[in-house]
Amino acid sequence: MGHTGTTTVKRGLAQMLKGGVIMDVVTPEQASVAQEAGAVAVMALERIPADIRADGGVARMSDLGLVQRIMDAVTIPVMAKARIGHLAEAQCLEALGVDYIDESEVLTPADDKYHIDKHKFSVPFVCGARDIGEALRRISEGAAMIRSKGEAGSGNIVEAVRHMRAIRGAIAELHALPEEELVARARDIGASLDLVRDVARDASLPVVLFCAGGVSTPADAALMMQLGAEGIFVGSGIFKAAAIYRNGKPEYDDNGFPKVDPEIALRYARAIVAATTHFEDPKAVVEASKSLGGAKPMYGIDVRQLDESQLLSTRGN
């Protein structure tokens, strides 16, 4: 009697998340903190990006039992990350019933050539992009939501700014181009002409565009919303700021997860939500920043000092 898994319902859930903050979580306890703070969804992953960056090795889909416990712990939508091209991980997440899958460059790619054919799934997908061509290629593959890639786990907003400006700038440019130039432009950016025409006509992507990759303060969130993000993903920015250290080294709990101070995490998460809601009101961002009570943002790294092999944003294209 009804039609499930349609483009409208897949893109529609992302539309319901607009203006909100989606928070990376590793454990059910972190998911509860995120929900309490006002997150619109949580993203389940094996390790937060800053830890993936520090630890190295292969980063995979989360333990499925843990994803289930996160789903049981909260009433907001639960997203989970699958490796680029790893259609079996995505099938598992769909069978488990997660609400959105992030085919993510933050995990180690499983396929160095192809992304997942996302049209084959009923569950919607979000994918990262650095520019308009990459965004439209992911949409052609069936992505129902796009996020900037930024440079995950860096604590540095510069790459997210670069990607958001590139995407928004290209949309404005396509909208201004004469019709006869669109074919050549579609060829140059490696995107379908139909999608390029849609973007040129509507002056927007056909799906919701969020920011991800490097948001670590309330002002970062307000900046990205002003640059045209429709919402914010925070990866390491919250739980890395709340990580507990001893002698400069992170502490781990009995299950091997980094220990976090839930009070600081809650305060941090709330402040980023408030700055996202009231991004155009500097007084509200001041209030949000003051509410951190001196809690320090995560350590940030200068992306220019990273080797090519340490960059996450160049994975997938």
Binding site: T6, V9, P77
Partner: peptide, 14 residues
């Protein structure tokens, strides 16, 4: 009743 029809997989056009 929230999410009465199910999670996102059950979202539908009618």
């Amino acid at each position: 009743r929230r999410n009465a029809f199910g999670r996102q997989i059950a979202s539908e056009e009618v």
